[in-house]
């Protein structure tokens, strides 16, 4: 339970962090809240030579509305702690799904350390935030010495714990649409109150009125319940649409659930989430 020895660097700016990342390449790992990274280092499943701590960079810690008029969105710095998302007045008004989802992550200790950027970079298919951002059709802003690029979350994940993010890139910002304070729901199903989800379903109402549904732990990446979304768009009832929620999913098997169970559970949770979101 003691990590392999490593060098510790704490750059003063994002640019300095990027320079260090470029310098050390594959030998370096970024440390944000540490709540995914440190456990694997302690189990010696990861042994980076250099740990670059971005956890205290104020320039990555903000929640604000950016952009103009119809193009405006909520911008969240990648280093923003879960706890700050939970209590954000901006988000309560502009994108209330996000604090509600974040409130269910782990326990207070985890929420005071973990960051949104860390959760998305880690990309655990059982994590709460990736599926929520997927339902929101958020955008991930990546920066490297080569410049900045914006990747829609729908194109971000490529498999279990893997994404299109290059090793020398940092997630600097997450952008989500202004979906407002209503029309959403999050159904997280756990064994114990502070466990990871066996399955969870995030529902949000897009600016155009469409329902978008993100699924947690139903495959190797966060998924959208596309068949359910389409059925709703065709005017099917919530019951009918929710019954399709597992279509295309390949859920995992573990102690907490068989794939068959998860395929069933997701339909129940989707129905309940849609009913709640409908108010």
């Amino acid at each position: 339970m003691i990590p392999v020895g490593f060098d510790y660097q704490r750059p003063e700016s994002v640019d300095a962090a990027l320079a260090l990342l470029a310098e050390h390449g594959d030998d370096a790992t970024v440390l944000a809240g540490g709540h995914s990274l440190l456990p694997v280092m302690k189990l010696r499943l990861a042994a980076p030579e250099v740990v670059i701590d971005i956890g205290r960079l104020a320039e990555l810690n903000y929640i604000r509305v950016d952009g103009d008029g119809a193009d405006s969105y909520v911008a969240i710095g990648a280093g923003t702690r879960y706890r700050d998302i939970v209590v954000s007045d901006v988000l309560a008004k502009e994108c209330a799904l996000l604090p509600a989802v974040t409130r269910t992550v782990g326990d207070p200790q985890v929420r005071h350390r973990g960051t949104l950027g860390g959760a998305l970079a880690h990309g655990d298919p059982a994590g709460d935030l990736p599926a929520a951002i997927l339902a929101l059709e958020g955008t991930i802003v990546l920066r490297s010495p080569r410049g900045e690029r914006k990747v829609p979350i729908t194109e971000f994940y490529t498999g279990v714990f893997s994404s299109v993010k290059e090793p020398d890139e940092l997630i600097v910002e997450i952008r989500v649409p202004r979906t407002g304070s209503t029309g959403w729901a999050y159904e997280k199903f756990t064994r114990r109150s502070n466990d990871w989800a066996i399955v969870a379903v995030a529902v949000v109402t897009a600016p155009d009125g469409a329902r978008r549904i993100g699924l947690v732990n139903m495959g190797s990446t966060p998924l959208r319940a596309k068949a359910t979304e389409a059925a709703l768009a065709e005017g099917k009832s919530i019951e009918e649409a929710a019954a399709l929620a597992a279509e295309g999913a390949e859920p995992p098997a573990d102690n907490a659930g068989t794939p068959e169970y998860r395929r069933h559970l997701v339909t129940v949770l989707t129905r309940r989430a849609l009913q709640t979101a409908a108010g």
């Binding site: 199903f189 064994r191 066996i198 102690n255 907490a256 659930g257 068989t258 169970y261 069933h264 559970l265």
Partner: peptide, 11 residues
């Protein structure tokens, strides 16, 4: 008596 076991038994 985890959810998966209870559900499987009902099922």
């Amino acid at each position: 008596l985890t959810p998966v076991r209870v559900w499987t038994a009902i099922h």
